[in-house]
């Protein structure tokens, strides 16, 4: 079951094509990473999902049905460029935005009370937004994004502009929301957060989707047969003789030494172990999967060259 499916979505603006036949499927309860360089079309796709823009072609399926105007109440959205009314009081503003998402005043008040207590920001209720720091405003923005307990939550570049404490808080909250059954889409450049949080990713470049799938599968798919061996003490002889085993890097690793090696397809990890046991006193052995960052750069470069 998928919370959201975008089918062959295209969108053109006056001077350029923002999305070209992009399809993504976001499974229920997943954290879905929408990756891509600046200007790739991520924000356009997100705005189409939020029904801010209408697609030129293709359609959005939400909860199994073509998306309807009412569905905005089941979606929470934190835009990349986020703001609040500066002259309005925090509580009043949160209440207003919550009611625009379809909550009754009573329900909105109850839930805001819960969130304000959770983030320990009750004292801000009667403050004007312009009196808050940026980090404080971000907490308020997060609350109004999730206040209506949406089925799908969309964060556009959530970690840009967040200070580390708030970024961490946000990560924890995202995991929490996932546990409670929400589906999350977030777009980002921050690849470490992708490895940490995402189950699925899609990579959009120059208005086209160029890669998608489960994170582990992608990393598996792009692995380079690279292994790390940690050993203690001296090396007995020269292990740089096997043409099938190429040592990429040697570095100290605490009291140990770590070498990184690339293998040809023919060799198995066991072969490697057998080979190195002859020369060194092995303390650790592991496969190195490519980071999402490496994959991202590689795929985008490759795509741009073609």
């Amino acid at each position: 079951m998928h919370t959201l499916i975008a089918e062959n979505v295209s969108k053109s603006f006056i001077n350029h094509k923002a999305l070209d036949d992009v399809s993504i499927s976001v499974p229920d309860g997943a954290i879905f990473g929408l990756l891509g360089p600046n200007g790739a079309g991520k924000t356009t796709l997100i705005r189409i999902i939020n029904q801010i823009y209408a697609p030129d072609n293709g359609r959005i399926i939400f909860n199994g049905n073509p998306i309807r105007p009412d569905d905005v109440e089941k979606i929470g959205y934190l835009p990349e460029e986020r703001g609040l009314y500066k002259k309005m009081k925090v509580g009043e503003q949160a209440l207003y935005l919550a009611q625009l998402k379809g909550l009754s005043r009573y329900e909105a008040l109850k839930r805001l009370k819960y969130w304000f207590e959770k983030f320990e920001i009750q004292a801000w209720w009667d403050k004007k937004v312009e009196e808050l720091s940026k980090g404080m405003a971000q907490k308020v923005q997060f609350i109004v994004t999730v206040i209506h307990q949406p089925k799908l939550i969309i964060f556009d570049e959530p970690f840009s502009g967040f200070d580390p404490i708030n970024a961490n808080l946000l990560k924890d909250e995202m995991i929490d929301l996932k546990r409670q059954g929400s589906t999350i889409i977030f777009s980002t450049h921050n690849m470490s957060s992708v490895e940490e949080l995402c189950d699925h990713v899609a990579l959009i470049n120059r208005s086209k989707k160029i890669l998608d799938g489960r994170v582990e599968e992608i990393r598996e798919q792009y692995k380079t047969n690279t292994f790390q061996i940690d050993f203690a003490g001296a090396i007995n002889g020269d292990f740089n003789q096997n043409p099938e085993i190429q040592v990429v890097k040697t570095e100290p690793f605490g009291k140990l030494t770590r070498i990184t090696v690339n293998l040809t397809e023919a060799l198995s990890p066991n072969d490697v172990l057998k080979y190195f046991i002859q020369y060194v006193d092995i303390h650790g052995f592991s496969e190195v999967l490519p980071s999402m960052n490496d994959i991202f750069i590689r795929v985008v470069k490759q795509f741009n060259q073609n």
Partner: peptide
């Protein structure tokens, strides 16, 4: 004001 404070996109996702 809504445009420059960027609140408008949040509201656009609701109405």
């Amino acid at each position: 004001e809504e445009k420059s404070s960027r609140i408008v996109e949040v509201i656009l996702s609701s109405v």
